[in-house]
Design a protein around this nucleic acid. Sequence first.
DNA 1: GCTTATATGCAACCTGGTTGCATTAGAATG
DNA 2: CATTCTAATGCAACCAGGTTGCATATAAGC
Lengths: 123, 123
Amino acid sequence: MTPDERITTNGLRLTTPRKKILSIFSSQAHPISFEEYALLDTTIDKSTFYRNMQTFEAAEIIQGIESDEGKRYFELSEKQHPHFICQYCHTITCLDEAPIPNLSGYRINSITYKGQCPLCSDI
Amino acid sequence: MTPDERITTNGLRLTTPRKKILSIFSSQAHPISFEEYALLDTTIDKSTFYRNMQTFEAAEIIQGIESDEGKRYFELSEKQHPHFICQYCHTITCLDEAPIPNLSGYRINSITYKGQCPLCSDI
DNA sequence: GCTTATATGCAACCTGGTTGCATTAGAATG
DNA sequence: CATTCTAATGCAACCAGGTTGCATATAAGC
Ligand SMILES: [Zn+2]
Ligand SMILES: [Zn+2]
Ligand SMILES: [Zn+2]
Ligand SMILES: [Zn+2]
């Protein structure tokens, strides 16, 4: 299913801002914040962006994660994977291969590791 | 080492607000936010609290974690353990027994799971 | 007790994110 | 294709968690 199809199958309107949002997120290798998104789409309105993030999270099209700096980062929620947030360089890495453990009784939707990334360990 | 000793061994002054902060955190079973802390210590000043959280995090006396609601929660950093944040009731649970996996190249300081807690699954 | 640097308390500020509301524009209908 | 109706946008004003500047207070060392 293409991102645009994910919009319509959820009964949402396929508007110009939404198409642009999904096309930009489709080309990202990491989660990005509004600040970073706005560099790639200079016409976006802040409230349109955040309202769509909420709508898309509810429709499970987009997934949000909290950084260690009090910001929210977003990515397409395609294949479930953990993230690593470096507390030194603040980079967010998708850990595509890392396993998702089992916690009996809990349903896990996301996993976030924080610590020191390989690049910051080398210094 | 008692919490108070952890202050002095870091070259920090043992002030009245700091003693109270550590005594209150010593009696918590979960991480708490400033909002919750302020209910237990009605004399605390917001900036004194947050400045001490930064100082204590640097001294590794306190550990902070980001909730799913854009707030920071804090707890004494005694034994390392993962946390589970329920996206429905927003409770933060300490997973004292959960294992901490190995990610080669990365140094892991904290693990946060998000999803649905057992209580919210039963409804 | 006196000195000095650190920590506190208050108010003002910053920033990421939300809300109210008038306007626009998808989508469905005929 | 024009009409209608409701969802979504765009702007400005707002909100809340957290930070900062600065004058005052107070630990700690002598
Ligand atoms: Zn790093
Ligand atoms: Zn990812
Ligand atoms: Zn719950
Ligand atoms: Zn804990």
